[in-house]
Amino acid sequence: MMPPEDRDAPLLTLLRVGRLFAPEPLEATDLLIADGRIAALGRDLVIPEGWPVRLIEAPELTAVPAFIDQHVHVTGGGGEGGCGTRCPEITAQEIAAMGIGTVVGVLGTDGISRSPADLLAKVRGLRAEGIAAYMYTGSYRVPPPTLTGDVQRDLAWIPEVIGLGELAISDHRSSQPRQDEIARLVSEVRVGAMLAGKRGICHFHVGDGKRGLEPLRRLLAETEIPAEQVIPTHVNRHRALLEEAADYALAFNASVDVTAFDDADEEDLSGFGAVSFLLKRGVPVERITMSSDCNGSLPEFDTQGNYIGMRVARNTTLMADWQRLVREEVLPLDQALGLISGHVARVLGLHERKGRLATGFDADVTLLDSDLQPQQTFVSGKRVYARDGSP
């Protein structure tokens, strides 16, 4: 049964803002929302008298596509130092406060005390709170834990499952999968996704091991798997890996995902520094995305691989690194938006619904102030966050 407050809510919402980026700058300053989607864009849109419309006027703010974070430990990561080191779950408020409307949940090292079923429950909980949430089946390990006992069935029968991840390579915490095991898993994901009408990416956690991206280079060079099926993340873990990521992206016309580490050892390995470096190396901006890894662990190990401590990652660093790219004119706003919206939507196979402000797209909108700080976040037309506390 529909809650009373939803039954009484206006059926239409009209946003009137100062500027609108779709991500390209538009002449329009009005955005009409109906049934969770963008119904019209224009200037001085007129709604017939008596129609049930909610007017939100924010002439000092800029409307952009709500951000998409493709790597979030929504149930919490961690556990490398025992049960007392499990990270907390993230809340819908923490997500929306950063202007993020869509997240993809992942399991990491711990696929034992946390499971795909836990992850699915959290994803559905976030959806109930207004966030557009999806998930990867699997975890670091091979064979991957699944919901149905089979990767292809997870993709085919569970709407929220959009791929496999985060499968760990080049890391002492991984299952050390053989090359044929990687190829088999990616192939299974590809076929399962085809049957489900999804992109079905394989989201690869890349550690700081000496093999780096070699397993993925071999996968694309030795099989028929297209590069769009494979997304390596954490490619700015160290300088040699970042160099390799640039070569990988250029050689295979592939996408790479930069993590907004809040414990980056060097300036060049921050999210800001890594994106700047990849652009200087000639990697097209369309092939670069950024994610937060938030609520995952930031563990520290000694030279023997022994756990010595950890911190919890936050999504505030993603926003800070992204803002800096615009403020320091590494990228203009319209191009920078792709790093955390349009390019991510394409990578995930959500580009026909998300990542743009256009008629027929989901009404996922973030309103930014002049300092690029999110002030309001809308998902499917519903305001899920307002910095001033407005309902």
Score class of each variant (00 low, 15 high):
residue 343 H to T: 12
residue 353 R to E: 12
residue 373 Q to P: 00
residue 353 R to A: 10
residue 333 L to R: 07
residue 336 A to I: 04
residue 351 H to S: 14
residue 353 R to D: 09
residue 371 D to T: 09
residue 366 T to M: 11
residue 364 D to A: 07
residue 334 D to H: 14
residue 368 L to A: 14
residue 365 V to Q: 02
residue 330 V to D: 02
residue 329 E to F: 00
residue 338 G to R: 07
residue 331 L to D: 00
residue 373 Q to W: 12
residue 367 L to G: 09
residue 332 P to I: 05
residue 337 L to G: 08
residue 347 V to Q: 10
residue 338 G to P: 01
residue 336 A to E: 01
residue 355 G to Q: 10
residue 331 L to G: 00
residue 368 L to M: 14
residue 362 D to C: 03
residue 336 A to S: 06
residue 365 V to H: 05
residue 341 S to N: 11
residue 357 L to S: 05
residue 329 E to A: 12
residue 356 R to V: 04
residue 356 R to D: 06
residue 363 A to I: 13
residue 362 D to R: 01
residue 356 R to Q: 11
residue 339 L to F: 06
residue 347 V to T: 12
residue 339 L to K: 08
residue 362 D to F: 02
residue 373 Q to V: 15
residue 331 L to Y: 00
residue 362 D to M: 03
residue 351 H to N: 14
residue 341 S to M: 10
residue 365 V to E: 02
residue 363 A to L: 13
residue 372 L to Q: 09
residue 352 E to P: 00
residue 359 T to H: 08
residue 337 L to A: 09
residue 339 L to Y: 04
residue 356 R to K: 14
residue 363 A to C: 13
residue 368 L to H: 11
residue 355 G to V: 07
residue 334 D to W: 10
residue 369 D to R: 00
residue 339 L to S: 07
residue 348 L to F: 05
residue 336 A to L: 09
residue 360 G to A: 13
residue 341 S to G: 12
residue 360 G to Q: 05
residue 362 D to A: 13
residue 369 D to A: 00
residue 341 S to Y: 07
residue 336 A to F: 04
residue 341 S to F: 09
residue 345 A to P: 04
residue 347 V to R: 13
residue 331 L to H: 02
